[in-house]
Design a protein around this nucleic acid. Sequence first.
DNA 1: CTCATTCTTGAATGTACGTTCAAGATATTA
DNA 2: TAATATCTTGAACGTACATTCAAGAATGAG
Lengths: 193, 193
Amino acid sequence: MRNAEFDREQVLRGAMAAFMHKGYTKTSMQDLTQATGLHPGSIYCAFTNKRGLLIAAIEQYQQDRNLQFNHLFASGNNVLANLKSYLDGIVVECLSCDSGQACLLTKALNEIAEQDDEIQGIINQNLQSWQRALSEQFEAAQQYKKFEGERNSEQRAHYLMMGIYGLRTFAHTHPQAETLQQLADQLFIEVCR
Amino acid sequence: MRNAEFDREQVLRGAMAAFMHKGYTKTSMQDLTQATGLHPGSIYCAFTNKRGLLIAAIEQYQQDRNLQFNHLFASGNNVLANLKSYLDGIVVECLSCDSGQACLLTKALNEIAEQDDEIQGIINQNLQSWQRALSEQFEAAQQYKKFEGERNSEQRAHYLMMGIYGLRTFAHTHPQAETLQQLADQLFIEVCR
DNA sequence: CTCATTCTTGAATGTACGTTCAAGATATTA
DNA sequence: TAATATCTTGAACGTACATTCAAGAATGAG
């Protein structure tokens, strides 16, 4: 008989930002009411829990990332150039560390790992789907370039993910454009070898 | 007129384990009294704070790691073989994830980053010294093998650190020996190219 | 043995947090 | 417009936490 007043996506992006900035545990409900513009009661009505809000935020994060990913790789050809752009984008993201622009998935993974099986499972699923998407790109890339190495697409995806995880952590201690860019370039060369 | 009864190193290793397992924020004082065998009052007397205990634990961690590192690389020759062993050791460590065997430095870095400047600084210093140690090994390695690539030792150290960070995170979602070992092998090949 | 000093103990304290809920506001239906 | 259903509000609640402190125990000096 009456619709919710708030914009769910906007609320979730606010929560996302808060969780990414402070981490799950250190983000208080007060932080979240401020970040989402919702009062405690509304949050509990809509998401059950602080934990439920995190889960919903992760879902939204994944959806946003998927859209962005698909958009970037939409152009049928030039797969490797797209991959390079993708990596460069991550470097830029690491540098714009105004408010701890980490990946929500890995941030939550590092914090919750081995504590909350359900969330762990959700994150794993999302990272798996990311891995699959990367694998597909490497598969497609083979039509444009014959790789020297004898690794399959999944192994390349694994290596790239490892590199991106590492790049993000490394950026915390070395937030310099040239250093990060050089690492990303090297990573790109290596993963396409 | 009276000496402390507890063994400082033993206490700090207990605290280390607790912090690595649950993360700083989620480790309660109760956890810490259990992990260290000390009562709250003693902890506050000896380390001022929960935060002070973390700082002391990080210091101890670094000292332990340094010892281990120096021991492994003590043999004057065979630098590259040592490096390989070092990486293999990390893989093993990632797999023995009984109780979240992460690196305390990166764990704290991911959790505290941009929140506590002093701790951030301490971690940065420790990671810098690790980087220097790795650089030195690559420098020494040049006497045994001429690298193809035109990267300097510092750049190789950077890349290796990125890889190790990434490997540790990757292990959370793929705790399988062959997958991790393959990534470590690939990383070793790449960093020595 | 006695005293002085230091360390240990763990219950008590204040605070900050996640969560609840009943009253109020608003929109839709008839 | 009246009735009803739903959403919003934010103060109040219980709990769990980091921290304190005063009393007790142990050590070394004289």
